[in-house]
């Protein structure tokens, strides 16, 4: 019997298991337990949620391994953790800890302003952010086994998540409608590997699972992203910065299952307490936008 550990099919496969689910940011083992009990399909272990990273300023780095291990010990669902863009040693450490997925994330301060991690070298799968098809396919080319549209983390404003999802899915529709002889030029214009562009055109979707992230704060936000065509959602600050995290977490999970059923969504959205206090994207200075990190 052949036995291959950490093949691309296996790395991509875990993302396929997460589909139709919600991945929640948690900063303590107690949060992780609440998320699991609410029906999260995975948790993202970190020291501060993006809203606090944004408020605190300074350099944001990989979380303390002690915290990540405690969260791994607490829940039975997959645990993800973030490393800085290009910081392959943080990624090596996270792999050594045994986390289930690494998010090479623009929410942390980038360690390399030209290069991302070469992710094919790892057995642990990676998820990466994108704002358009070119960025998504560059990350997949480097070995990302899952993609999330970036949105703007820590704002509770869904507008950027919508913009990026529409951009990626619109790019794919455009790619599928053009004659084949234009595909090479299109690949060049978006800076994406030609073979992956061809594969995307054939599939009519990204070659890996595509979630939405960055600004999702309500069940309706989550269902909006699902109806636009993503396969699941990340919720960061939106849950544990709200008035009743357990209730809201459960409602977002339900909304992703019944994203196409307005009557169910109406029921699910009732009486959830205060949502997180949002911050309008238009009020944030251009150089403070996290989504611009990544190349």
């Amino acid at each position: 019997m052949s036995n291959e550990v950490g093949s691309f099919a296996v790395k991509k496969g875990l993302a396929q298991m997460l589909k139709g689910g919600v991945i929640m940011d948690v900063v303590t083992p107690e949060h992780a337990r609440i998320a699991e009990d609410a029906g999260a399909c995975a948790v993202m272990a970190l020291e501060r949620v993006p809203a606090d990273i944004r408020a605190d300023g300074g350099v944001a780095r990989m979380s303390d391994p002690e915290l990540i291990l405690k969260i791994m010990d607490t829940v039975s669902i997959p645990v993800m953790a973030k490393c800085r863009i290009g910081h392959f040693v943080e990624a090596q450490i996270l792999e050594a800890l045994g986390v289930d997925y690494i998010d090479e994330s623009e929410v942390l301060t980038p360690a390399d302003e030209a290069n991302h991690i070469y992710k094919h070298d790892f057995k642990v799968p990676f998820v990466c952010g994108c704002r358009n098809l070119g960025e998504a396919l560059r990350r997949i080319g480097e070995g990302a086994a899952m993609i999330r549209t970036k949105g703007e983390a820590g704002t509770g404003d869904v507008v950027e998540a919508v913009r990026h999802a529409r951009q990626v899915l619109g790019d794919i529709r455009h790619l599928q409608s053009m004659p084949i002889e234009e595909v090479m030029s299109f690949s060049k214009s978006i800076g994406a590997p030609f073979e992956l562009v061809l594969e995307t055109r054939k599939l009519g979707k990204l070659p890996v699972v595509n979630f939405a992230a960055g600004g999702i704060a309500t069940p309706a936000d989550a269902a909006l992203m699902m109806q636009l065509g993503v396969e699941g959602v990340f919720v960061g600050s939106g849950i544990f910065k709200s008035g009743d995290p357990a209730k809201r977490a459960n409602a977002v999970v339900k909304a992703v299952t019944h994203f196409n059923d307005p009557k169910m969504l109406a029921e699910i959205s009732r009486n959830l307490g205060e949502p997180m206090v949002g911050r309008q994207i238009s009020s944030i200075a251009d150089n403070e936008l996290l989504a611009k990190r990544g190349w």
Binding site: V5, G6, L14, S76, P78, G98, V124
Partner: peptide, 17 residues
């Protein structure tokens, strides 16, 4: 028994009879 083979880094493909 859940996660009987370990965490994701231990996930694998194999030919089964």
């Amino acid at each position: 028994a859940r996660n009987a083979f370990g965490r994701q880094v231990e996930s694998f493909e194999i030919d089964l009879n």
